[in-house]
Computed example of a mutant assay.
Amino acid sequence: IGFSFMAGPILASALVDNYQQAVRASAAVTIVSSTLILLLPTPLEKGERSRRTQQEKLSSGLLDFVSLPVLRTRGAQVLMTMRLLMALAFHMFVPVWQVSIKERFDFGPRDHALFMGIVGFTYALSQGFVAERLVRWTANKPSTLLLGCIFVLGGARPIALWTSSVYVVYALYVPMVISLGVLNTAISTASTHLADKAQLGGFFGVMESVENVAGMFGPALGGLLSRTAGEKGTLAAVVGCYGAAFALVSLYFTKHITNRTKSS
């Protein structure tokens, strides 16, 4: 993912000159990606009986997916709420951020490419090297690591939004992106301690669904707040989400996740 964030904007700035070309290039890449589905292996069993069996398994699988026992645990609910708050904060911030950097620094396509390239490289670095080591070093008290990451994400956004120096923006986004990568890795690690192997795939799917729901409503909510209360209103909501996540980790993470992991 980090490599895609890094390479995509850089390639676009070098190969694309206008919006129409960007749309065509995106459509072409999407079509190529879709054709890879044809390379997936086909089931060995054939016939009507096999299809009925597969349909029954699919129906049962969907019911099992939404009724996973792990979803009824307090630890899983804490993680899902954390993921929702973090994703909602991110997606609410995006509309205000895009307008702000255009107004303050007159960001053009090449500026966006450079910015996203740095973000992608930093995220890849975080996921590949930093996150695993930090999660391992703080295994006995992961809540400290989570609180630190949330503090960086929530505390740096107002400065990045209000500073008049583009260099300060770049300097802030490096630790912010690293914190995001570490936080995602820590949440994934905690998820593996809550769910057994039979439920882990479904639990990860639910976590992704929660994040996607925030992606559906977050930008619209951020734009609405910006229109009615200005960028300060959106920023207050974003920081509020981080504050709620900070309080959630402080109050419940150790009790419902860390202690359960140690006892098991």
Rank of each mutant, 00 (worst) to 15 (best):
A89I: 06
R260S: 14
V23D: 02
K57G: 04
K46F: 05
L40E: 08
V23F: 12
L248Y: 05
H112A: 10
G47K: 06
L146K: 01
G75I: 09
G117F: 09
M216C: 12
F204W: 10
P43V: 07
V70C: 03
R157V: 13
W162I: 06
K46M: 12
V29S: 14
V239I: 12
T189G: 08
L172P: 01
L134S: 06
G230M: 03
P219V: 09
A195W: 06
A220T: 12
A171E: 00
D111Q: 14
A229Q: 11
A14R: 15
R157K: 07
F93E: 05
L194I: 12
F93C: 09
W97V: 02
G8N: 04
G2H: 06
L63R: 11
F65M: 15
M207D: 01
F105W: 09
A245R: 01
L114M: 11
P69E: 08
Q199N: 10
R157C: 07
G2F: 08
W97L: 13
F5V: 00
L225Y: 02
P9S: 05
T138S: 11
F217W: 10
A247M: 15
W162E: 10
R72C: 01
A76E: 00
I31G: 03
K255M: 05
V249W: 00
V32T: 13
L38Y: 13
A28I: 15
R74C: 02
W137V: 08
G2N: 07
G61P: 03
G223N: 09
Y167W: 12
A131R: 07
V66K: 04
E56L: 14
I1C: 04
E132Q: 13
S100Q: 15
V66T: 09
A247G: 07
G117L: 09
S209Y: 01
R83G: 04
T234F: 02
S26I: 11
A198H: 12
G202Y: 10
H112M: 15
V16D: 02
M116A: 04
E208V: 09
P175W: 10
F217D: 04
I31F: 14
D196L: 09
L40T: 14
R227G: 11
P142R: 15
R157H: 06
G205H: 09
D196A: 06
A198V: 04
T163W: 00
G230T: 02
R227V: 10
L15H: 04
G233T: 05
S226D: 10
E208N: 15
W97A: 08
N184W: 07
W137A: 13
T73R: 13
M92Y: 02
S33C: 07
Y167K: 00
A247T: 13
D196T: 10
S143I: 03
L200M: 12
G218K: 01
H193F: 08
T189F: 09
R49K: 12
Q55L: 15
Y242H: 13
L194Q: 02
H91R: 08
M92R: 03
E45S: 11
V94H: 02
Q199A: 10
I187Y: 00
L200P: 01
I1A: 08
V177D: 01
Y252G: 01
F246A: 05
V29E: 02
L251G: 01
K262Y: 07
I257E: 00
L15W: 15
L161D: 00
A220W: 09
M207P: 00
L71M: 15
L147C: 08
G148R: 12
F203E: 03
T144A: 07
L36Y: 14
F65E: 05
V135P: 02
S50W: 10
L36A: 14
R72M: 03
L36W: 13
L114F: 13
T185P: 03
